[in-house]
Structures are given as C-alpha cells and as structure tokens.
Simulated scan of single mutants.
Amino acid sequence: MSEASPISKSLSRAKYIGAQGLRSLWYGGHYTYVRRSAGGFTRPGEPPFRPEHGIPDMKAMRRAYLKAFETDLANIEAGLYPRPRDVRLSQLRRTLKRSRRFLKDARDVDDRRLHRNGSEVRDAADASVYPTYYRQNFHYQSGGWFSDDSADIYDTQVEVLFGGAADVMRRCVLGEVARQMKGRDQRATSFLDLACGNGRFLNLVLDAFPRLAASGLDLSPNYTEKARSAVRDWPQADIIQGQAEAMPLPDSSMDMIVSIYMFHELPPKIRKAVAGEIARVLKSGGVFIFADSLQFDDTPELNALLEYFPEGFHEPYYKSYLREDFDSLFSKQGLVPDKVQPVFLTRIQRWKKPL
C-alpha cells in the first residue's frame, strides 16, 4: 500500500483534531454543568479532607490530556488501528438521548454522593451469586452494575468524567493489543476482555481484528447482555457471565487477556485471586495487558489529582489500589513485567507468561 500524500495526511489530521475537539467540548460541557449543579462532598461532623500531595496541578493534567490525543493519533497514523468512525445521524440521536438520561440521573448520583450512600443495591442483588464487594453503587451510579439503564449510560458517564478522553485511552490500550498481534493469525489467537462491561472495548478490538477468536467476561447480567449486543456483528465473539476471581475457563486457554479499569474496584484479597486466575488461564508465552488508573508516582505531577478522586466518588478500594505493588502481585504468579506506559490517567503495562 502506498504511503498517503502530505495533503491527504494533513486533511486526515485536521479531521481527527476537529472531531476530537468537538467531543471534548461536548463532554467537557456536561462535566461543567454537573459540577456547577452539584453539592459539596463532606457531611457535617466528618473530618475535613487533608491531602498529602497538595492541590491538583491542572496544567499538568491538561498536558497529559493533550498528550493522550497525540499518542492516539500517532497510533492511527502508524496503522495500529482504524481512526474513529464518523458520527452518523442515528448515532447523534442516540448520543443526545443518552445525554438527557445522564443529566437527569446526575441528580440522583449527586444525592447519593452527598449522603455517602454507596450500598443502595446491596439488598437488591442476589447475595448467593454476587459477592458483597460487588453489590455496591460504584461511582454512586444508579443501579450499580445491576440495571439496563446503568449499562446504557455508562459510556456517557466515563466520557464526562474524563472530558471526552475515555475512548482515547481505550484506543491506546488497543495499540498495545495491536503490537502484540503482529505476526499472529487472528483466527488462531484466543483473546479475553476481562471485566468487559458493556462491550465498548471489545467492539473496538473486533473492529480492528474482525477474525479474532475473542471473548468477554463480566459478572453483571445487565452489562453482559449489553456486551452481546455490542459484538453482534462478529459471530465468533463469545460473552460469558462470571467472576474474574473464579473464571469459568480452562487452564492455559487464552493467548491474550486484557483488563481495563477493573483492579481499582477490587479489594486487595480479590486482586490477588484475580492475578492467580489470569496466570492460570494464560497459555505459556501468553500476554496480559493491564490498564487501570494511574498509581502514585506513575506521573508524579498528577499524584494530587489521584488523591482527590475517591473523595468525590464511591470507590471504596481505590486508596489501597494507589499503593498496591502490582510488580510483586503478578510476579508471584510467574508473570514477567514490562515497563509502565502512562496515558493521561491510565497506566498500561504488559505482563508475559514465560514459555
């Protein structure tokens, strides 16, 4: 294939910048509206929050934010994955509908935040099927992981939280998947999206690698149903409902496992169990791609921002996550690490199971 002409490349870049700029303005506007209409986070009688790392450096955050888009564009131009698809009228209508639902639901989310009510769904979910740590309203979101509405507006929620950069960070994870796919036969490569949620990332993966022997696993009945819809164009894709700490999968059955933003929502003991399951399910020579929140000192100038995050959102295990020693956790399972790659607020790290 011949290389694109300078004019074609410039037009493609301009189109990318324009589209991503509009997304940033759209979701950034949502964030500004929700923040201005939200109440405070500290109840009367609670001790005031005293940060260790001072006030967040917003200039450093903006630099990291813009750099993520630069990385995404560089990956696209390197041919690692397709550029984002143009928005169609039907998608625009769906986006507007979800935005209206998001803004309406934001009032209920704020009420839970003000009252520190993060366990509303505990009695609504079957305790014999779903562990206690999972039966919570993470992020104070309505329904927790147990409603169709939650599964439907989740992507809007995270895009608002990250100012329109959630898909950008997902695509940068996809870039690491693409690097690992070089030289592999898609049809002979078994791939697992662990804690696949509503299937957003798995959809991106299959769009780039349409013949991949892909599976997604998640514990939520509502999110797995949504994921099945997200990957319906790829008949070989399989969505499984199950626990990450007890995967219903055979030993040495996966060539590649990816986990995005799961570990910070697990208690320390469960993190250890999940690490063991990942090592068990990976084939010899297989790769695990870890993608989750930054930890302290991944990007030192963002430490203060990380410290503030759990004060405003129901993330009961996030503070322990920030200091979790993942090098030790996964190395004890026999996995060999590569270096951490920070992309905005996400840390991406590759682990390999030796032959």
Rank of each mutant, 00 (worst) to 15 (best):
F326T: 05
R347L: 10
C196N: 04
G54E: 04
L282V: 08
E277R: 02
Y318S: 05
M256F: 06
F263P: 00
T346G: 09
R94F: 06
V258C: 08
R211Y: 07
R232W: 11
G164S: 07
D152Y: 13
F41W: 07
G183H: 03
Y130H: 14
I278N: 00
Q243L: 11
F326M: 10
F49Q: 02
P310Y: 03
D297A: 03
L89H: 04
L11H: 11
P316T: 15
V109R: 04
V205A: 08
K319Q: 12
G183K: 02
R85S: 15
K319F: 03
P342M: 03
A195Y: 04
I260T: 08
G79L: 10
R116T: 13
F69T: 13
Y133V: 04
S328A: 13
L212P: 00
P48F: 04
A195N: 05
A165W: 01
C196A: 08
F162L: 11
F191W: 06
D255I: 01
D238Y: 00
T32I: 09
D238T: 14
S150Y: 01
I278H: 00
N303A: 09
I153P: 01
H115N: 15
A244V: 02
M262E: 10
H53T: 05
T95V: 15
G18M: 04
S37H: 10
D149H: 13
V281Y: 00
A244W: 01
G28I: 00
S320F: 05
P354S: 08
D149F: 02
K352F: 03
G28A: 08
A64L: 08
D57E: 11
P48A: 07
N117V: 07
F326N: 01
K339P: 06
L11I: 14
F288G: 02
L96Y: 13
K339S: 14
I239H: 01
P84E: 12
M254W: 01
R187W: 06
A208H: 03
S99W: 05
D86E: 14
D110K: 03
K272Q: 13
A19Q: 12
G183S: 02
K269M: 13
F49V: 01
Y31F: 12
G143W: 10
N75L: 08
L329A: 05
R63S: 12
E120F: 08
H115W: 07
K352T: 14
P47F: 01
R83C: 12
G286W: 01
R135G: 09
I348V: 15
S142E: 12
R347W: 04
R112L: 12
V287N: 06
F309P: 02
D148H: 14
K269L: 15
R200A: 15
A213E: 14
A237M: 06
Y130K: 02
D86N: 12
S37Y: 09
H314V: 00
D110H: 07
P267N: 05
Q341E: 13
R280W: 06
Y140A: 07
R232H: 11
V109Y: 02
S150M: 11
D292C: 10
I270W: 04
A230H: 08
S320Y: 01
